[in-house]
Simulated scan of single mutants.
Amino acid sequence: MTMQPGAPQLHELPAAVARAAMDGMWADLGGEPAAVARAEDAVADGVPVKLYWPEGEGPHPVLIWIHGGGWVLGSAAASDATARDLCGLAGNLVVSVDYRLAPEHPFPAAVEDVTAVAKWVSREIGALGGDTTRMAVGGDSAGANLSAVLANALPGTFAQQVLVYPATDLTHPFPSYHENGEGLMLTKDALAWFQGHYLDGTGADLKDPRVSPLYADAATLTAAPPTLVITAGYDPLRDEGEAYAQRLREAGVAVEQVSYEGQIHGFFSMPAAIPEAREAIERVTSALRRAWA
């Protein structure tokens, strides 16, 4: 899938306009989601979240889900169909995080927000029907980056992490960055725009593990939970996702790494248009159900 010829690319638009365009696209392509028992908005230590409960009696295992969008775009509302699928199909309560976005709130605001939510969940979700002894974290793209950072920051908290085409090395030293950097959903120019909004002026080091979790030390990675990594063959981030899976394996972590060779970055959010997205969602929910068992 490519952007329409002649149309402005997302990274050529003001951030607010790009957000509205992306939110509309995800809403259109999310498909008919799984049924959930109920959904509510809440605030977790100052951070807006959307909560989704599965059918049945609790206490339910809990998934913290962190949306993608290059730390600049996306929202819990735009990820509603994904959150409902992950709730209804895996049988867990989902906490979908509306972390602050760049450039208004650059690094480390997003890291601070997802960390605050995880601590709130550990403290408060029991009263809302959640089981804090069975928790997972996951996300797609920038959300997978933040998920990995969060799992590394809070060892022992999560029984599973799910990283869907994660950004793990913002220096992008791998061949896929160049092989897949033009003409598709995510380009090198778009990555530069996202990273500029997220990091410019912050003084952050691209090899800070809170920016690029591939640079976490071995002791940190050894404490990571069992991990599912999903990559897409036509994604500039493909190789860094696979490299992160390999580093986790070398650290002794149980890793399932699945490559959807014919797919592009973003496909996971498009089950209405891409049948393999439904398969990938089911793979994630199967991994979660195994973790809960």
Rank of each mutant, 00 (worst) to 15 (best):
K188E: 15
G31L: 01
G70P: 00
P225C: 11
L63C: 04
S96I: 04
T171D: 08
P106S: 10
Y198W: 15
A7F: 05
P33G: 10
G130A: 09
R278F: 01
G69L: 12
A192M: 08
G130T: 05
A78N: 00
A44L: 12
G30N: 08
V149C: 03
S96P: 08
A293D: 15
M22A: 10
A204E: 12
A78G: 12
G74I: 01
L63T: 05
P33V: 06
D131H: 05
E57A: 15
L237N: 10
G24Y: 09
R278H: 03
T133A: 15
P48M: 09
V72F: 06
V114L: 05
L163G: 10
D217N: 15
L128F: 13
L191D: 02
H105G: 10
N145F: 05
A251Y: 11
P175V: 07
T220C: 12
T187P: 03
A232E: 00
R84V: 07
L10E: 00
A216H: 02
L146K: 04
M135C: 13
C87M: 11
V62Y: 07
V62C: 07
M1I: 07
W193F: 13
A27H: 06
G30M: 07
A277C: 12
P33K: 08
L237I: 08
A291C: 06
Y99E: 13
T157M: 15
L89Y: 01
D41M: 08
H178C: 01
V255P: 01
G156V: 15
F267S: 02
I264V: 11
R210N: 06
H197W: 07
L199S: 06
A223M: 06
S212G: 14
T2N: 15
Q160P: 00
P61W: 04
H178L: 09
T171K: 06
L10I: 09
D23M: 13
R290M: 09
Q161C: 07
M3H: 15
A280M: 02
K119C: 01
A159Y: 00
G88Y: 01
E57F: 03
W53S: 08
G70W: 00
V114K: 06
D205Y: 10
H197V: 06
L214N: 00
E57Q: 14
W26Y: 14
A148I: 04
G183Y: 00
L214A: 04
A110G: 04
E276F: 09
T285D: 07
P8W: 02
F174I: 02
A16W: 09
A118H: 07
E40I: 13
H265Q: 07
A44Y: 13
A224P: 01
E282P: 00
P271A: 13
Y260C: 04
L13K: 08
A251L: 10
H178I: 09
E276C: 08
H172N: 10
P173V: 11
S141N: 03
L146M: 07
Q4V: 13
L170Y: 12
G46W: 11
E279W: 03
A216S: 15
T168P: 11
T222Y: 00
K119F: 06
D140I: 01
E104C: 09
V121I: 10
T171P: 04
S122V: 01
G129A: 05
L237E: 14
Y165C: 09
P106L: 12
N145H: 00
I274V: 14
A251V: 12
A232G: 08
A192Q: 14
A110T: 05
S176F: 05
D169P: 10
M22G: 02
R289S: 10
E124W: 07
S269N: 14
